[in-house]
Simulated scan of single mutants.
Amino acid sequence: MIILGLTGSIGMGKSTAASMLRRLGCPVHDADASVHKLYARGGKAVPAIQGLFPDVVKNGSVDRAALATAVLGRPDALKRLEAAVHPLTRADADDFLKRCARRGVPVAVMDIPLLYETKGEQRVDAVIVVTAPAWLQRQRVLARPGMNAAKLANILARQVPDAEKRRRADFVVPTGLGRRLTLLHLRRIVVAMKQRQGRVWSPTRKV
């Protein structure tokens, strides 16, 4: 089984690419959705976070805005949070891959917004980076509810720059030239990947 990493800076079209990959028959694990599930009522991360930051758990679920405030400017607090949550997100991703392997899926996709920031490239066979011109990225992001230029600048400051992502990628997919071209690029990648042997998830690995 080939494991593809999908990433890209904010506003670059990653969600659209993930949807297209699903249409092409590739199951996609959404890292953000996984975290939302862990933080929701009954989620596995709730007890650990409540132990670290009692005030951020409200009505049995984690208030993400309150949690962000609790760790803002506090590197030690952020490290404690990551130590509690990262093993749970990794376990959820592993469960997804095990299900894919049992089904004989040839290509599985890990949608990870901060892939390079968390050294996620070490856990996939190849990386797709989606990209678009900076002006289009800005236009897309500022059209989102509650977004402004200051928030965008703060988010970009925490992400690996787009140029560096493109340099390190195995595949670069443009999303600013129309959905048809984006889909064509992704289809070619999936077809090529199906001809390869995965190194991360070997055929002999137990599921």
Rank of each mutant, 00 (worst) to 15 (best):
L24T: 09
T89N: 12
E82V: 13
V28A: 08
K79V: 08
A83E: 10
A66W: 14
R80F: 03
V109F: 01
A18N: 12
R99F: 04
G104A: 03
G8Y: 01
G60K: 04
G42H: 15
L72T: 12
D55T: 13
D76T: 13
M110P: 04
K58T: 04
S34D: 14
W135L: 10
L52S: 07
G73F: 08
V160I: 12
V107N: 13
V105D: 09
A68H: 10
R144Q: 04
G178D: 03
R123E: 14
V109G: 14
V85A: 15
S34K: 14
T89M: 07
V129T: 03
L142P: 06
K79D: 02
W201T: 08
W135Q: 14
D55M: 10
K79P: 02
A93T: 14
L142Q: 04
Y39G: 10
R196Q: 07
R80I: 06
R41A: 14
V46L: 09
L72G: 11
G51E: 13
C26A: 15
E121I: 09
A134F: 02
P54V: 05
A45E: 02
V173E: 01
P54D: 07
L4Q: 05
K79H: 06
P106A: 08
D95F: 15
A17P: 05
S34M: 15
L38Y: 12
I155N: 00
V56F: 05
A149L: 04
G5P: 00
L181E: 13
R196L: 03
R74E: 12
D95P: 07
Q122S: 13
R180G: 01
G146V: 00
T131W: 09
D94C: 13
V105F: 07
K79C: 08
T204Q: 15
D162W: 00
R140T: 00
Y39K: 14
K119A: 11
A68E: 11
D63F: 12
T69S: 14
K151E: 06
L24G: 09
M20H: 11
K119H: 11
L78P: 08
L24A: 12
L184H: 04
L72D: 13
D32I: 09
G11C: 03
A169E: 08
A108T: 05
R102K: 05
A150T: 06
R138D: 00
P54G: 05
G51L: 07
P87I: 04
K98V: 11
V129H: 03
I3T: 12
K37F: 09
M193R: 15
